Simulated scan of single mutants.
Amino acid sequence: MSLPTDLKYTEEHEWLAERDDVVRVGVTPYAANALGDIVYVDLPEVGKQITFGEACGELESTKSVSDLYAPATGEVTAVNEAVIDDPAQVNADPFGEGWLLEMRVTEYGKLLDSAQYAELTGE
């Protein structure tokens, strides 16, 4: 799967898409493939303040449990209830219906463009 060039990425394998005054967040196909079949998603509550680089949720797969790291600092404004009900969407459509949360960002951490992320992952 080719990487969308209009997104930003983190070294922890999250993607960010600007949507009006909020940012939509998900995990990359690289992360979804490494995890295997995702069977449970735990996301922060709407209104919660999250801090760049700190764990803010979990993705559980048939292989392991992995922390979801905040890709920026700010307030969670929405969570994707559909992936909580059907976690397999994260594997099936990570850049689309498998998004995880939206947030109003107050501070960004280190972000990569698609070429830098591709170099990081060898894709």
Rank of each mutant, 00 (worst) to 15 (best):
E102H: 07
E12I: 06
K8M: 03
N33T: 13
K48I: 11
T73C: 10
D37Y: 02
E119H: 15
M103H: 05
L3D: 00
L43I: 10
C56N: 08
E14W: 13
S2T: 15
Y108K: 08
A115N: 12
R19D: 14
V25F: 12
A92M: 04
K110W: 07
Q116N: 10
L101T: 04
A55I: 05
V105L: 02
P29I: 13
L59N: 03
A31T: 06
W15A: 05
G74E: 05
K48T: 13
D93V: 09
N33L: 15
S64K: 07
V79W: 05
T62A: 12
E123H: 11
H13W: 09
D113M: 11
A32P: 05
N80A: 06
L100S: 07
V79E: 04
L68F: 13
R19N: 13
T62N: 07
W15P: 02
Q49H: 06
P87C: 08
E58Q: 13
F95Y: 15
G57T: 00
H13L: 01
V27T: 10
E11M: 14
D21V: 09
W99Q: 01
E12P: 08
E58G: 14
L100G: 08
G36I: 11
I38L: 03
H13D: 03
N33P: 14
E45W: 02
L100W: 15
K48C: 12
I84P: 00
E107K: 07
V23R: 11
A92V: 07
E102Q: 06
V105D: 04
V79C: 00
L16C: 15
V90G: 09
G57H: 05
A31K: 13
V46P: 13
V41R: 03
A78S: 10
E54P: 05
V27M: 06
G122S: 01
L59W: 03
S114E: 00
E18F: 08
D42K: 09
Q89P: 07
M103F: 12
T106W: 07
R104Y: 10
T10K: 01
E97A: 15
N33A: 15
E119P: 01
P29Y: 10
D86T: 15
P71W: 10
L7N: 09
L35I: 00
G36M: 10
